[in-house]
Design a protein around this nucleic acid. Structure first.
Lengths: 141, 141
DNA sequence: TTGGTTGCAAAGTATTTGCAACATG
DNA sequence: CATGTTGCAAATACTTTGCAACCAA
Protein backbone atom coordinates (compact mmCIF):
# COMPACT_ATOMS: atom_id res chain seq x y z
CA UNK A 1 0.00 0.00 0.00
CA UNK A 2 2.91 2.32 0.55
CA UNK A 3 4.31 0.72 -2.55
CA UNK A 4 1.14 1.75 -4.20
CA UNK A 5 1.81 5.28 -3.12
CA UNK A 6 5.32 5.25 -4.49
CA UNK A 7 4.13 3.72 -7.74
CA UNK A 8 1.30 6.09 -8.32
CA UNK A 9 3.40 9.09 -7.48
CA UNK A 10 6.09 8.00 -9.89
CA UNK A 11 3.54 7.54 -12.65
CA UNK A 12 2.70 11.19 -12.33
CA UNK A 13 6.24 12.43 -12.09
CA UNK A 14 5.66 13.19 -8.42
CA UNK A 15 7.90 12.31 -5.53
CA UNK A 16 7.67 10.07 -2.52
CA UNK A 17 8.28 12.01 0.65
CA UNK A 18 8.08 11.07 4.32
CA UNK A 19 5.22 13.56 4.78
CA UNK A 20 3.15 11.91 2.08
CA UNK A 21 3.68 8.50 3.59
CA UNK A 22 2.78 9.72 7.04
CA UNK A 23 -0.34 11.49 5.90
CA UNK A 24 -1.59 8.54 3.91
CA UNK A 25 -0.97 6.25 6.84
CA UNK A 26 -2.76 8.68 9.14
CA UNK A 27 -5.87 8.63 6.95
CA UNK A 28 -5.79 4.86 6.88
CA UNK A 29 -5.45 4.60 10.63
CA UNK A 30 -7.96 7.27 11.54
CA UNK A 31 -10.62 5.88 9.20
CA UNK A 32 -12.54 9.15 8.99
CA UNK A 33 -10.50 12.24 9.61
CA UNK A 34 -10.57 15.93 8.88
CA UNK A 35 -7.41 17.69 7.72
CA UNK A 36 -6.98 18.99 11.25
CA UNK A 37 -7.21 15.54 12.75
CA UNK A 38 -4.73 14.23 10.23
CA UNK A 39 -2.38 17.03 11.16
CA UNK A 40 -2.68 16.31 14.86
CA UNK A 41 -2.08 12.63 14.22
CA UNK A 42 1.08 13.02 12.18
CA UNK A 43 2.42 15.62 14.57
CA UNK A 44 1.87 13.25 17.45
CA UNK A 45 3.97 10.72 15.61
CA UNK A 46 6.89 12.53 14.19
CA UNK A 47 8.49 15.80 13.32
CA UNK A 48 6.57 18.94 12.62
CA UNK A 49 4.46 18.71 9.53
CA UNK A 50 2.79 21.83 8.27
CA UNK A 51 -0.94 22.32 7.79
CA UNK A 52 -0.49 23.44 4.19
CA UNK A 53 1.35 20.23 3.50
CA UNK A 54 -1.59 18.28 4.86
CA UNK A 55 -4.03 20.10 2.61
CA UNK A 56 -1.79 19.80 -0.41
CA UNK A 57 -1.06 16.17 0.26
CA UNK A 58 -4.68 15.18 0.77
CA UNK A 59 -5.42 16.79 -2.56
CA UNK A 60 -2.65 14.83 -4.24
CA UNK A 61 -3.68 11.58 -2.58
CA UNK A 62 -7.23 12.11 -3.71
CA UNK A 63 -6.11 12.72 -7.28
CA UNK A 64 -4.12 9.52 -7.10
CA UNK A 65 -7.24 7.72 -5.96
CA UNK A 66 -5.75 6.68 -2.63
CA UNK A 67 -8.11 8.65 -0.45
CA UNK A 68 -11.59 10.10 -0.83
CA UNK A 69 -13.54 12.73 1.03
CA UNK A 70 -17.14 13.32 2.03
CA UNK A 71 -18.86 15.95 4.10
CA UNK A 72 -19.99 14.49 7.39
CA UNK A 73 -20.62 17.85 9.00
CA UNK A 74 -21.23 21.41 7.94
CA UNK A 75 -17.61 22.03 8.73
CA UNK A 76 -14.44 20.42 7.49
CA UNK A 77 -14.45 17.53 5.01
CA UNK A 78 -13.64 14.02 6.16
CA UNK A 79 -11.08 11.84 4.41
CA UNK A 80 -10.89 8.10 4.28
CA UNK A 81 -8.71 5.53 2.60
CA UNK A 82 -9.85 3.84 -0.58
CA UNK A 83 -8.48 0.62 0.85
CA UNK A 84 -11.79 0.39 2.67
CA UNK A 85 -14.42 -0.88 0.31
CA UNK A 86 -16.67 1.83 -1.03
CA UNK A 87 -19.45 2.80 1.34
CA UNK A 88 -22.23 5.27 1.91
CA UNK A 89 -22.17 7.43 5.01
CA UNK A 90 -25.29 7.83 7.10
CA UNK A 91 -25.01 10.37 9.88
CA UNK A 92 -27.35 11.20 12.73
CA UNK A 93 -27.68 14.91 13.30
CA UNK A 94 -28.47 14.45 16.93
CA UNK A 95 -25.85 12.05 18.20
CA UNK A 96 -23.41 12.68 15.34
CA UNK A 97 -22.90 8.97 14.92
CA UNK A 98 -21.75 7.87 11.49
CA UNK A 99 -22.69 4.50 10.06
CA UNK A 100 -21.32 3.04 6.89
CA UNK A 101 -23.64 1.25 4.53
CA UNK A 102 -22.98 -0.98 1.61
CA UNK A 103 -23.46 0.76 -1.75
CA UNK A 104 -26.38 -1.62 -2.27
CA UNK A 105 -28.37 0.75 -0.14
CA UNK A 106 -28.53 3.24 -2.97
CA UNK A 107 -28.46 0.85 -5.91
CA UNK A 108 -31.98 1.86 -7.01
CA UNK A 109 -30.92 5.49 -7.05
CA UNK A 110 -27.80 4.72 -9.02
CA UNK A 111 -29.92 2.85 -11.52
CA UNK A 112 -32.54 5.57 -11.82
CA UNK A 113 -29.94 8.25 -12.37
CA UNK A 114 -27.98 6.10 -14.79
CA UNK A 115 -31.15 5.85 -16.86
CA UNK A 116 -31.03 9.63 -17.02
CA UNK A 117 -27.42 9.58 -18.14
CA UNK A 118 -26.03 10.52 -14.75
CA UNK A 119 -23.15 8.65 -13.14
CA UNK A 120 -23.64 8.95 -9.42
CA UNK A 121 -20.66 9.14 -7.11
CA UNK A 122 -21.67 6.72 -4.40
CA UNK A 123 -18.59 7.10 -2.26
CA UNK A 124 -19.10 10.79 -1.80
CA UNK A 125 -22.64 10.47 -0.58
CA UNK A 126 -23.55 11.53 2.94
CA UNK A 127 -27.08 10.94 4.14
CA UNK A 128 -28.29 12.98 7.09
CA UNK A 129 -31.18 12.36 9.41
CA UNK A 130 -31.86 11.09 12.87
CA UNK A 131 -31.59 7.66 14.36
CA UNK A 132 -34.22 6.48 16.78
CA UNK A 133 -31.77 4.83 19.10
CA UNK A 134 -29.22 7.57 19.37
CA UNK A 135 -27.93 8.61 22.74
CA UNK A 136 -30.07 11.72 22.73
CA UNK A 137 -33.75 11.78 23.64
CA UNK A 138 -36.17 12.13 20.75
CA UNK A 139 -37.67 15.55 20.19
CA UNK A 140 -41.18 15.89 21.59
CA UNK A 141 -43.63 15.17 18.80
CA UNK B 1 -46.12 33.81 2.55
CA UNK B 2 -44.90 37.02 4.05
CA UNK B 3 -47.87 36.65 6.35
CA UNK B 4 -46.48 33.29 7.16
CA UNK B 5 -43.24 34.93 8.12
CA UNK B 6 -44.96 37.41 10.41
CA UNK B 7 -47.02 34.68 11.99
CA UNK B 8 -44.19 32.31 12.63
CA UNK B 9 -42.00 35.04 13.99
CA UNK B 10 -44.71 36.17 16.37
CA UNK B 11 -45.21 32.63 17.58
CA UNK B 12 -41.63 32.63 18.73
CA UNK B 13 -41.68 36.07 20.25
CA UNK B 14 -39.54 37.29 17.39
CA UNK B 15 -40.07 40.40 15.32
CA UNK B 16 -40.88 41.14 11.74
CA UNK B 17 -38.27 43.40 10.21
CA UNK B 18 -37.72 44.68 6.68
CA UNK B 19 -34.43 42.80 6.54
CA UNK B 20 -36.10 39.52 7.32
CA UNK B 21 -38.73 40.08 4.67
CA UNK B 22 -36.12 41.02 2.09
CA UNK B 23 -33.92 38.06 2.84
CA UNK B 24 -36.77 35.58 2.72
CA UNK B 25 -37.95 37.04 -0.57
CA UNK B 26 -34.40 36.87 -1.93
CA UNK B 27 -34.15 33.17 -1.14
CA UNK B 28 -37.50 32.58 -2.81
CA UNK B 29 -36.51 34.48 -5.91
CA UNK B 30 -33.00 33.13 -6.26
CA UNK B 31 -34.14 29.52 -5.83
CA UNK B 32 -30.73 28.28 -4.77
CA UNK B 33 -28.50 30.86 -3.20
CA UNK B 34 -25.51 31.09 -0.91
CA UNK B 35 -25.46 33.67 1.88
CA UNK B 36 -23.22 35.81 -0.30
CA UNK B 37 -25.63 35.69 -3.19
CA UNK B 38 -28.51 36.56 -0.92
CA UNK B 39 -26.53 39.50 0.39
CA UNK B 40 -25.76 40.74 -3.11
CA UNK B 41 -29.41 40.38 -4.08
CA UNK B 42 -30.85 42.34 -1.19
CA UNK B 43 -28.21 44.99 -1.53
CA UNK B 44 -29.04 45.41 -5.16
CA UNK B 45 -32.62 46.05 -4.15
CA UNK B 46 -32.55 48.28 -1.15
CA UNK B 47 -30.54 49.87 1.59
CA UNK B 48 -27.41 48.37 2.99
CA UNK B 49 -27.98 45.11 4.73
CA UNK B 50 -25.14 43.59 6.64
CA UNK B 51 -23.60 40.18 6.07
CA UNK B 52 -24.05 39.19 9.70
CA UNK B 53 -27.73 39.95 9.38
CA UNK B 54 -27.95 37.63 6.41
CA UNK B 55 -26.32 34.80 8.31
CA UNK B 56 -28.41 35.40 11.40
CA UNK B 57 -31.60 35.70 9.41
CA UNK B 58 -31.03 32.57 7.35
CA UNK B 59 -30.55 30.73 10.61
CA UNK B 60 -33.81 32.10 11.99
CA UNK B 61 -35.69 31.36 8.79
CA UNK B 62 -34.41 27.83 8.82
CA UNK B 63 -35.51 27.35 12.41
CA UNK B 64 -38.93 28.65 11.43
CA UNK B 65 -39.02 26.10 8.63
CA UNK B 66 -39.28 28.71 5.90
CA UNK B 67 -35.98 27.91 4.22
CA UNK B 68 -33.66 24.93 4.09
CA UNK B 69 -30.06 24.46 3.11
CA UNK B 70 -27.98 21.83 1.38
CA UNK B 71 -24.38 21.67 0.29
CA UNK B 72 -24.13 21.90 -3.45
CA UNK B 73 -20.42 22.62 -3.48
CA UNK B 74 -17.46 22.18 -1.20
CA UNK B 75 -17.86 25.82 -0.29
CA UNK B 76 -20.78 27.82 1.03
CA UNK B 77 -24.17 26.22 1.73
CA UNK B 78 -27.10 26.86 -0.56
CA UNK B 79 -30.48 27.99 0.72
CA UNK B 80 -33.86 27.47 -0.84
CA UNK B 81 -37.43 28.23 0.08
CA UNK B 82 -39.64 25.53 1.57
CA UNK B 83 -42.42 26.85 -0.64
CA UNK B 84 -40.87 24.71 -3.33
CA UNK B 85 -41.93 21.14 -2.80
CA UNK B 86 -39.27 19.01 -1.20
CA UNK B 87 -36.67 17.80 -3.64
CA UNK B 88 -33.38 16.00 -3.93
CA UNK B 89 -30.43 17.80 -5.48
CA UNK B 90 -28.35 16.09 -8.09
CA UNK B 91 -25.25 17.98 -9.14
CA UNK B 92 -22.76 17.34 -11.90
CA UNK B 93 -19.20 17.89 -10.80
CA UNK B 94 -18.08 18.73 -14.26
CA UNK B 95 -20.63 21.24 -15.51
CA UNK B 96 -21.87 22.19 -12.04
CA UNK B 97 -25.46 21.88 -13.19
CA UNK B 98 -27.97 21.17 -10.47
CA UNK B 99 -31.11 19.19 -11.14
CA UNK B 100 -33.95 18.71 -8.73
CA UNK B 101 -35.56 15.32 -8.39
CA UNK B 102 -38.74 14.22 -6.76
CA UNK B 103 -38.19 12.56 -3.38
CA UNK B 104 -39.49 9.40 -5.02
CA UNK B 105 -36.01 9.00 -6.39
CA UNK B 106 -34.73 7.97 -2.99
CA UNK B 107 -37.88 6.32 -1.63
CA UNK B 108 -36.19 2.89 -1.47
CA UNK B 109 -33.37 4.38 0.56
CA UNK B 110 -35.76 6.11 2.91
CA UNK B 111 -37.57 2.80 3.40
CA UNK B 112 -34.41 0.81 3.97
CA UNK B 113 -33.10 3.26 6.54
CA UNK B 114 -36.48 3.55 8.23
CA UNK B 115 -36.34 -0.21 8.73
CA UNK B 116 -33.11 0.41 10.60
CA UNK B 117 -34.74 3.07 12.75
CA UNK B 118 -33.22 5.97 10.88
CA UNK B 119 -35.28 8.93 9.69
CA UNK B 120 -33.57 10.24 6.59
CA UNK B 121 -33.62 13.94 5.81
CA UNK B 122 -34.46 13.89 2.13
CA UNK B 123 -34.45 17.64 1.57
CA UNK B 124 -30.87 17.98 2.69
CA UNK B 125 -29.55 15.36 0.34
CA UNK B 126 -27.11 16.30 -2.40
CA UNK B 127 -26.04 13.66 -4.86
CA UNK B 128 -22.82 14.25 -6.78
CA UNK B 129 -21.62 12.67 -9.96
CA UNK B 130 -21.29 13.42 -13.63
CA UNK B 131 -23.89 13.80 -16.30
CA UNK B 132 -23.20 12.38 -19.72
CA UNK B 133 -24.67 15.33 -21.56
CA UNK B 134 -23.00 18.11 -19.68
CA UNK B 135 -21.28 20.89 -21.58
CA UNK B 136 -17.87 19.51 -20.80
CA UNK B 137 -16.21 16.70 -22.73
CA UNK B 138 -15.97 13.34 -20.99
CA UNK B 139 -12.65 12.41 -19.46
CA UNK B 140 -10.60 10.05 -21.63
CA UNK B 141 -11.29 6.51 -20.49
C1' DT C 1 -40.77 51.06 27.39
C1' DT C 2 -38.97 46.50 26.79
C1' DG C 3 -36.39 43.45 24.69
C1' DG C 4 -35.51 41.65 20.15
C1' DT C 5 -32.62 43.24 15.99
C1' DT C 6 -29.16 45.48 13.29
C1' DG C 7 -24.65 47.29 11.76
C1' DC C 8 -20.04 47.52 12.54
C1' DA C 9 -15.71 45.92 13.61
C1' DA C 10 -13.03 42.47 15.34
C1' DA C 11 -12.20 37.72 16.03
C1' DG C 12 -12.53 32.92 14.57
C1' DT C 13 -12.18 28.84 11.69
C1' DA C 14 -10.98 26.60 7.44
C1' DT C 15 -8.17 26.75 3.51
C1' DT C 16 -5.03 28.66 -0.11
C1' DT C 17 -0.97 30.76 -2.00
C1' DG C 18 3.76 32.95 -2.84
C1' DC C 19 8.23 32.06 -2.19
C1' DA C 20 12.77 30.70 -0.59
C1' DA C 21 15.02 26.73 1.33
C1' DC C 22 15.17 21.96 0.74
C1' DA C 23 15.30 17.08 -0.76
C1' DT C 24 14.05 13.37 -4.09
C1' DG C 25 15.15 10.83 -8.10
C1' DC D 1 21.36 19.03 -10.15
C1' DA D 2 16.76 19.82 -11.93
C1' DT D 3 12.44 20.08 -10.37
C1' DG D 4 9.03 18.66 -7.27
C1' DT D 5 8.04 19.66 -2.11
C1' DT D 6 7.96 21.73 2.22
C1' DG D 7 7.51 25.24 5.86
C1' DC D 8 6.39 29.67 6.90
C1' DA D 9 3.80 33.64 6.79
C1' DA D 10 0.47 36.24 4.74
C1' DA D 11 -3.73 36.24 2.28
C1' DT D 12 -8.40 34.63 1.41
C1' DA D 13 -13.04 32.77 2.15
C1' DC D 14 -16.64 32.07 5.13
C1' DT D 15 -18.87 32.68 9.47
C1' DT D 16 -19.45 34.13 14.30
C1' DT D 17 -19.57 37.28 18.10
C1' DG D 18 -19.61 41.48 21.27
C1' DC D 19 -21.69 45.53 21.78
C1' DA D 20 -24.00 49.99 21.34
C1' DA D 21 -27.56 52.11 18.73
C1' DC D 22 -31.96 51.12 17.02
C1' DC D 23 -36.74 49.89 16.35
C1' DA D 24 -40.90 46.69 16.49
C1' DA D 25 -44.66 45.61 19.38
Amino acid sequence: MSDDLATRLREQGLRLTPQRELILRAVEELRHATPDEVLAHVRGQVSSVNASTVYRTLEVLEELGLVRHTHLSDRAPTYHSTLEHEHVHVVCRRCRRVRSYDPDLVAPVVAALAADGFAMDVGHLAIFGECADCGHPPEPT
